[in-house]
Design a protein around this nucleic acid. Structure first.
Ligand SMILES: [Mn+2]
Ligand SMILES: [Mn+2]
Ligand SMILES: [Zn+2]
Ligand SMILES: [Zn+2]
Lengths: 144, 144
DNA sequence: CCGCTATTGATACTCGGTCTCAATAGTACA
DNA sequence: TGTACTATTGAGACCGAGTATCAATAGCGG
């Protein structure tokens, strides 16, 4: 994804575009795999930046709030951040290597309606994630 | 749920039925809401037990492995444990009070097939969770 | 260019969970 | 009813992820 576009979205909401935010956004836009806040922090520090750890967490939080960033839940209970395309999307995650594929078109609306009816909950959202083994990891496994 | 039945499941898999495990199982079977490991630990210690914190975590892990316990992912990123009925089930969670309703009958198989086809992943499972506001919390909100 | 205030980095802290290791206690078996 | 074998235990140090505080700084509107 495009770092400039992400920064624009920050400005649109009235947030300031600062050096540290720019660095964080550029670092995460270069990533393909789910990442942790500390991975981003360590990468920046290794490159000589003086951006603080708290700022990395704060910036990631902002992007999650703006729906530009999402979280994947790993089977072991840990979380990773992933860039998101706009719109309502979900993720398919490789449990072996962590590769993420985004997809659209979950068909759970009917299920949500039925549940709301039955339980009297006001349903405000859902979380859907598939996990499995990607093609690469399948052939790698077969090779052993 | 019945503590004795849960302990039986442990024995069935060849695990020993020990005092600490019995205490943990009894504590969680008495709960209605999602709970954390430390809540269970604190409750046991307050009641005079000498069960260790690591043992609480270890026992919960076993039960998750046996599918007797599940995890709910809260929007803020934290997790809670919940008792599960047997079979393939999901959760609807109240974001206000934490109440959990279990349900069956998610209809995502077709979606999974289509995804597997398109991405060449071997899909091994999915995670589906709804969140919203339960009836009680809705009326409580309306009262303000 | 100035001033206001959002944002910052350092630091200390919490929370959930893991690892190690010597001591203990279930259980199978005689 | 022992006894021996080994799974399990509690303590305590440790880790990763995230938050709270606060004085210093740097965007940005004017
Ligand atoms: Mn989660
Ligand atoms: Mn399902
Ligand atoms: Zn993979
Ligand atoms: Zn509620």
């Amino acid at each position: 994804m495009d770092a400039a576009h992400v920064l624009e979205s920050l400005r649109d909401v009235g947030l300031r575009i600062t050096g540290p935010r720019r660095e964080v956004v550029e670092a995460i836009c270069a990533r393909e795999m789910p990442f942790s806040a500390d991975e981003v922090y360590d990468e920046l520090r290794a490159a000589g930046s003086s951006t603080g750890r708290a700022t990395v967490f704060r910036t990631l939080d902002l992007l999650v709030g703006l729906r530009l960033l999402g979280r994947v839940h790993r089977p072991d209970g840990s979380h990773g951040y992933v860039l998101r395309e706009p719109g309502h999307r979900h993720h398919l995650v490789c449990s072996t290597c962590g590769t993420v594929v985004e997809f659209q078109g979950c068909n759970v609306a009917a299920l949500a309606d039925e549940l709301a009816d039955r339980t009297q909950f006001r349903i405000e959202g859902h979380w859907l994630e598939f996990f499995g083994v990607c093609a690469d990891c399948q052939s790698r496994d077969a090779a052993d």
